[in-house]
Amino acid sequence: MVDIPDPTVLYRVRDGAYAADLLIAAVAEIDLFTWLAAHGPVTAADLCAKLGLAERPADVLLTYCAALGLVDRDLDAGDRVGLTGLGRRHLVAGSPFDLRAYYGSLAERPAVHELAQVLRTGSPAAWASAEREADWSERLGDPAFAERITAAMDARGAFLGPALAAALADVPVTALLDVAGSSGVYAAAVLDARPEVRAAVFERPPVDRAARTLLADRGLAGRIDVITGDMFTDPFPAGFDTHLYSHVLHDWDAPRVERLLAASFAALPPGGRLIDHDTHVDADKRGPLAVAEYSVLLMHSTPGKCWSVRELAEMAGQAGFVDVEHRPGAGDRGVLIARKP
């Protein structure tokens, strides 16, 4: 077997591209830490109300700041947030070691203003900060953009896919539905070690066409079907005992994640399994740092974020799933598995 160097550091550089700009926005646009010094500890809900921040992006900001060691966050105390010594000493007005001016010198970066706007409105900015472009999901209707995004997701999956397959080695799978599976790279990885398994990618146009091309290029057109449909408006195909979401749920808000999990529960047979392969925030929302940084990018450009293990377990339980467990993957990814009774 060829020894492949671990590219996790390269994933982190790309996935964390917006993280520094969020901290600059928190310091220069909101002066979050000076406010916390005067009013904290407070609940996250009170912080949002007093500073005029939307819940989703504020949650991402607080997770990131906790991962950096700037705030302490206690979910079991009503999501109470207070400053740490690091935050108090270096990002609060009046401290002799105040670095706010240092961060403020970069406040004119375009992404800083975009992220401040997202924090206040909750509405995502354009994908990759592209000027005068539609929402990223709407842009997938453009074949050229869809092909570019599909190629990007496919490139990411070449390393991550085999690790996903290894994490699922003891999970029984007969027929796998790769929901919004893009190129089908993860379904292909699972099938690589399971010649008896069949699979299908459930994708909307024009991504479905890109998926067919890539699967044919890999010689997998006979093993992995592509079923055209919209996961939010079309019934899920029957006949599959495993539903895989890989890097899908992080693109959507809670109501739509809940809708997808409910749709999977309805379509799966008894004993069927739900698998979420993604970057997951720790249950206490204090890290890991790399995932918290990636969540900033998602918060900036989509209606979603990196969901915590706790949040996903609760939503899966509400949908009716049981035996929820979480396993490590590669490249800061994890695998959450749940079973339909």
Score class of each variant (00 low, 15 high):
309 V>G: 07
324 V>P: 09
121 T>R: 08
153 M>V: 04
146 A>F: 10
19 A>P: 00
257 V>D: 07
2 V>S: 14
54 A>V: 00
11 Y>M: 11
341 P>C: 08
279 T>D: 08
12 R>Y: 03
316 A>M: 11
234 D>H: 07
274 L>G: 07
247 H>Q: 11
97 F>H: 15
74 D>Q: 15
215 L>T: 08
307 W>I: 04
63 T>P: 00
266 A>K: 10
226 V>I: 13
328 P>G: 12
299 M>L: 06
5 P>R: 13
192 D>R: 14
137 S>P: 00
206 P>N: 04
294 Y>W: 12
82 G>S: 10
24 I>P: 02
30 I>T: 10
204 R>A: 14
20 A>Y: 02
317 G>Q: 09
145 F>W: 05
164 L>R: 04
100 R>S: 12
288 P>N: 05
74 D>R: 12
324 V>W: 10
145 F>S: 03
315 M>S: 09
259 R>F: 09
282 D>P: 01
136 W>K: 03
36 L>K: 02
44 A>D: 07
183 S>N: 10
191 L>V: 12
224 I>P: 04
130 A>Y: 00
267 A>M: 07
261 L>Y: 04
199 A>C: 01
91 L>D: 05
76 D>P: 01
243 H>A: 11
158 A>S: 11
42 V>T: 08
148 R>L: 03
164 L>C: 06
203 E>N: 09
174 T>I: 03
171 V>P: 00
51 L>D: 07
188 A>Q: 04
41 P>V: 00
133 E>G: 01
181 G>P: 07
208 D>E: 08
318 Q>V: 12
86 L>N: 01
96 P>R: 01
56 R>W: 01
116 A>P: 10
338 A>T: 13
149 I>D: 10
70 L>H: 03
75 L>C: 06
100 R>P: 02
70 L>Y: 10
256 R>Y: 03
80 R>M: 12
162 P>Q: 01
64 Y>H: 15
62 L>N: 00
322 V>G: 11
89 R>F: 13
44 A>Q: 11
321 F>T: 03
319 A>G: 10
338 A>C: 14
289 L>C: 01
216 A>T: 13
89 R>S: 12
8 T>A: 14
279 T>F: 14
307 W>R: 14
111 A>P: 04
106 L>S: 12
198 R>V: 06
297 L>C: 11
294 Y>F: 13
162 P>H: 03
82 G>L: 10
138 E>G: 08
11 Y>D: 06
26 A>M: 06
130 A>S: 06
166 A>D: 11
88 R>L: 08
295 S>L: 11
309 V>L: 13
248 V>D: 06
22 L>G: 01
330 A>R: 14
68 L>I: 02
168 L>G: 05
202 F>R: 04
32 L>G: 01
94 G>V: 04
90 H>F: 15
29 E>K: 15
190 V>S: 04
271 G>I: 04
169 A>D: 14
89 R>D: 11
253 D>C: 10
234 D>I: 02
